[in-house]
């Protein structure tokens, strides 16, 4: 086993950690950085619970080596709200009861944010396909799609 020193910016703050070269970014974020809002549902890129942004693009952190994150910027669910102010997606997820168990919620929020940044006025179909990489087993996606629609509307007002 050989180690690797990773210097990153996480949710805007500089952060350094050392890890074995084969460690995934998901494991590092959870076990070394302490950001357990990033969830592991499968470890193979099929459920999206570990979604984060890496230099602004949406990825599954289980499919990224921590070593790859060296010199790059990471965004996680822990960085979504601005102090006391929740992100509109966070607000709408609560308001629309778009979560039941909530384990998939961090991943959905990150994916939905990535979608709305690219496409502020997505159709229902566009929302459904953009979120297809995030599995939810509780809600049947109904209230999640509605929450994203409501957040999009809210964000367009600004």
């Amino acid at each position: 086993m050989s180690g690797f020193l990773v210097s990153t910016k996480i949710n805007g703050d500089a952060f350094q950690f050392a890890c074995p070269s084969e460690e995934t970014l998901l494991d590092s974020l959870r076990n070394r950085v302490g950001l357990t809002g990033v969830k592991e549902g499968c470890g193979t890129g099929d459920c999206g619970a570990c979604s984060i942004t890496l230099d602004g693009s949406l990825v599954c952190s289980c499919l990224v080596l921590a070593a790859e994150a060296d010199g790059r910027e990471i965004g996680t669910v822990e960085g979504l709200s601005d102090g006391m102010k929740l992100h509109p997606l966070q607000e709408k997820f609560i308001e629309h009861a778009a979560l039941q168990c909530g384990i998939c919620t961090p991943g959905f929020l990150i994916s939905a944010k990535a979608l709305l940044e690219k496409n502020p006025k997505p159709s229902e179909k566009e929302i459904r396909y953009a979120l297809a990489g995030n599995l939810c087993r509780c809600t049947g996606y109904d209230k999640i799609v509605r929450a994203v629609q409501a957040a999009a509307k809210e964000m367009r007002k600004k």
Binding site: G43, L63, L65
Partner: peptide
């Protein structure tokens, strides 16, 4: 390693244990 979307799955499932990974990005 380019996208890693196959490589890391195989590592996770224990199908391979690389001695070296070369990131070409």
């Amino acid at each position: 390693l380019a996208g890693g979307t196959d490589l890391l799955v195989r590592m996770k499932l224990g199908l391979i244990e690389p001695a070296l990974v070369v990131d070409i990005k």
